[in-house]
């Protein structure tokens, strides 16, 4: 009898695990941004530069382009609307795998002091490997209506998808394909700038204390590990980057001896044209724009931070030659 009961329990447990997998979105053809966090884990961990931040990093910089031009090995650990406490945890997690020379953090998320949307939480967290960092991140990102348990057992969140399953859910049940190149999400569409809503007055232009606390933590961790923390503001027309924001970041950077590059200011120098180089009218750059920006920023990184040119390193180069072949194919 005991044996039978064991078999029954094992059977239902396996069924439960399979169903969890079945109803969880695969993020392969729709909402592909949910797949990004996962792709890092299978990479060879040899990056000298790691980007962290929101879509303003994964849409605007191309690591493969930077490798092609300067031999820089970099990876973008960006996710959709990555909030600063999420960036911090991703930074901590990254350091468990490797020790880069430079961490580039996009400061756009400084404006958010509270979690914004459950969907974005899911895109960032669903595919993250379990670790202390993930647990911290869930706890600090959950909205009122969310439960921790639903991150452990996705069936609790996605069970209603059972009546909406698509071919994607079966096709990618076991194996998934990568959708980024070192974290860069290629978008070739062109949508010229037209207009954006008027600039709003805000109740406060000062970044919140808790947000600064996370940034302080990043500074501390990078200093302790001898890593350069580089702050950037990626080029975009919207959402507005207020002058008050800019001043605070400049002050913070100088107080903490950090590099800060507001790339909005060098748009002309880089050659970005918001009529051809953006896929959504000026929020994010398309492939054209990202290529231009990567050439500029790669040069800057190389000049400032004494990075290795890995094109001369045979073992690394052979990995990247493969990536370049695939990349060239994808950008055609």
């Amino acid at each position: 009898m005991k044996k039978r009961i064991c078999i029954i329990i094992i059977f239902f447990l396996s069924l439960f695990i399979l169903l969890n997998r079945l109803v969880t979105p695969k993020y392969q053809t729709e909402l592909i941004e949910g797949h990004m966090i996962k792709e890092y884990y299978q990479e060879a961990k040899n990056h000298e530069v790691i980007f962290i931040g929101d879509c303003e990093v994964y849409a605007n910089f191309s690591p493969i382009q930077m490798y092609k031009d300067y031999g820089i090995t970099s990876y973008i650990r960006g996710t959709s609307q990555q909030l600063i406490w999420q960036s911090l945890e991703i930074l901590k997690e990254t350091l468990k795998y490797e020790k880069p020379k430079v961490i580039v953090f996009n400061v756009n998320s400084m404006r958010y002091d509270k979690p914004v949307s459950e969907a974005y939480n899911r895109l960032t967290l669903d595919n993250m490997k379990w670790s202390q960092e993930k647990i911290n991140m869930i706890n600090s990102s959950m909205l009122e209506e969310e439960t921790f348990l639903s991150y452990i057992f996705p069936i609790l969140r996605y069970h209603s998808r059972i009546t909406e399953l698509t071919k994607e859910d079966l096709d990618y049940f076991l194996n998934e394909k990568n959708i980024t190149f070192n974290g860069f999400l290629i978008n070739k569409n062109i949508k010229p700038y037209t207009s954006f809503p008027e600039q709003r007055r805000l109740p406060s232009y000062t970044f919140k204390e808790n947000v600064y606390k996370y940034l302080d933590e990043m500074v501390k961790i990078t200093k302790n590990n001898n890593i350069e923390l580089v702050l950037i503001k990626a080029p975009s027309i919207y959402p507005y980057w207020y002058d008050e924001y800019e001043k605070q970041i400049i002050d913070y950077a100088s107080k903490n001896n950090l590099h800060y590059y507001n790339l909005k200011k060098v748009v002309d120098e880089v050659g970005i044209d918001y009529n051809t180089d953006t896929y959504d009218g000026g929020l994010h750059l398309n492939l054209n724009g990202a290529t231009k920006l990567s050439k500029y920023f790669g040069k800057l990184l190389q000049d400032e931070f004494n990075l290795t040119d890995y094109r001369n390193n045979e073992s690394v180069n052979s990995i990247y030659q493969n990536k370049i072949l695939l990349y060239n194919d994808a950008i055609k």
Binding site: G34, D54, C55, S80, Q81, T194, F196, P197, E198
Partner: peptide, 24 residues
């Protein structure tokens, strides 16, 4: 008198803003 679409990080074309003389 003016129109703009604002997409966000992963979701496209969520917000549409229509501008009128004195309000949006």
């Amino acid at each position: 008198i003016g129109y703009s679409e604002v997409s966000s990080c992963a979701f496209e074309g969520l917000d549409k803003t229509y501008k009128y003389d004195h309000y949006e």
